[in-house]
Structures are given as structure tokens and as C-alpha cells.
């Protein structure tokens, strides 16, 4: 079953400060959805609005598939996480609605294995390198098997080798036809995998350009 997310007349921004829109869009699973724009254009705001972290300033969600949403933030330096073991950080991603749903030991092991970090399961999160921390947060986001996944600048501040590792993980995630993935980035040359659409934001205007067809 494919996942979809459709909005109408969406206006994104902060309560008294819209930054982009209004626009209509329908995103479907079966590949990656790129959200791009210059710094300050509102692409992260769009990502956070899709994830439900910000309310839209206007418009509505016409329809969306059921299922959990996860957001992988750009800033992973949260001090509260630094002392925790990586497997504990990943396990917390499975506490949907405060209940354990996918954060058990096997799911954590599998998620860590998926991102190539099983050997760092008991390493403190604060001791991981930038690329490893980013992959750990991706593992945390997938442990609950989310239907919607928003990755905000997943390669920001990483070196080439780490970018390749993250890109490889995202490519693997994109193979899942039941998952709808947005990647928010201002540079997309590193991105691999099937691209379904590009949402470009510039000067407050949001344009959705479909690219390719769903992966099989």
C-alpha cells in the first residue's frame, strides 16, 4: 500500500509571520521527495510543518495516510542525549504516544544494523562522530516504522565519507514503497535513489515539480 500526503492552500510560517505559500501539493511514496531552497527560504519550516511540529498558518490537509511521523533534525547536539547510550536513544524513537511500539531490543538492534551502527550500540551518543550521530538519529526515526519521514539537512556539517554513508542509508529507506520520505536540503548533489518530486521554495513561492514515477 502506498502512502500519500495532500494539502490545499497551505501557508507555512510562524503564527504571525507566514514565510511561503499558499500552495497545493500531493506527495506519494515510492521514492524521495526533495525540498530545496536557499538559506532562510522556509524549507525547514515546510519540513517541520509536514512533520506536525509547526501548525500551518493557513490551508488544510486534504488527506493523508494513517501512520506515525518522524522528523530527523538538523541539529543533533542535544545535550540531554549526549550521556545516553546509543541504543537507549534509538529505543526512545519507538515510544509512540508514550507507549512502547517498536522500541524493543530486537527492533533497536535491527534499526542500528540498518544504519551500520550495531557495534556502537553501547557507545554514548555524545561520543559518536557527526556522521554516526546522524545515522543514529535515522535509526531512531525508523525504529517505530514511520509512514512519514522528514529528514532536515541530513548531511549538514558532514565530511564526504559521512555524507556517502548517510546517502546510502537514505537510498535504502527510499526503497520502501509504504514510506513517504522528504529530504530537506539546499544542496542535493549527494542525494542518491529514486526521486519522486522536487518542492522548490524561493521568495515565498512554493512550486512542486513531479520527477519520475514510483519505484517498483
Amino acid at each position: 500500500m502506498t502512502a500519500h500526503f495532500e494539502v490545499r492552500d497551505w501557508l507555512i510560517g510562524y503564527t504571525d509571520h507566514p514565510v511561503a505559500g499558499p500552495f497545493n501539493a500531493r506527495w506519494e511514496s515510492g521514492g524521495l521527495h526533495l525540498i530545496r531552497g536557499e538559506n532562510g527560504s522556509g524549507k525547514s519550516t515546510l519540513g517541520r510543518t509536514i512533520a506536525g511540529l509547526l501548525p500551518p498558518c493557513g490551508g488544510r490537509i486534504v488527506s493523508r495516510s494513517p501512520g506515525p511521523t518522524r522528523f530527523v533534525p538538523q541539529d543533533f547536539g542535544a545535550a540531554a542525549l549526549a550521556s545516553l547510550r546509543t541504543d537507549q536513544v534509538v529505543a526512545s524513537g519507538g515510544w509512540e504516544g508514550g507507549r512502547e511500539s517498536g522500541g524493543g531490543s530486537e527492533e533497536v538492534r535491527s534499526a542500528l544494523d540498518d544504519v551500520g551502527l550495531l557495534e556502537f550500540a553501547t557507545t554514548r551518543f555524545g561520543r559518536l562522530s557527526g556522521g554516526q550521530a546522524r545515522r543514529a538519529l535515522i535509526a531512531r526515526s525508523i525504529v517505530a516504522s514511520p509512514t512519514f519521514l522528514v529528514l532536515d539537512e541530513p548531511t549538514a556539517g558532514l565530511d564526504r565519507a559521512s555524507i556517502d554513508q548517510v546517502a546510502e542509508r537514505i537510498e535504502a529507506l527510499a526503497a520502501d514503497r509504504e514510506r513517504l520520505i522528504w529530504v530537506v536540503t539546499h544542496q542535493s548533489d549527494w542525494l542518491r535513489g529514486p526521486l519522486r518530486s522536487i518542492t522548490a521554495i524561493a521568495d515565498g513561492v512554493v512550486e512542486l515539480e513531479p520527477v519520475g514515477s514510483p519505484t517498483t
Binding site: S92, W95, G97, E100
Partner: peptide
Amino acid sequence: RHRRALLLTAVDRDLAVTAGL
């Protein structure tokens, strides 16, 4: 009873909100 919700909202607001808390 509410340890996960209390801890998750304490350590990571974004994750808590997307997890429905």
C-alpha cells in the same frame, strides 16, 4: 505509569510531538 511520556518530552520535544505527545 507515564515514565516514557515524561522522559521523552523532557529530552526531545520534536520527537515527543511527532510521537503524539
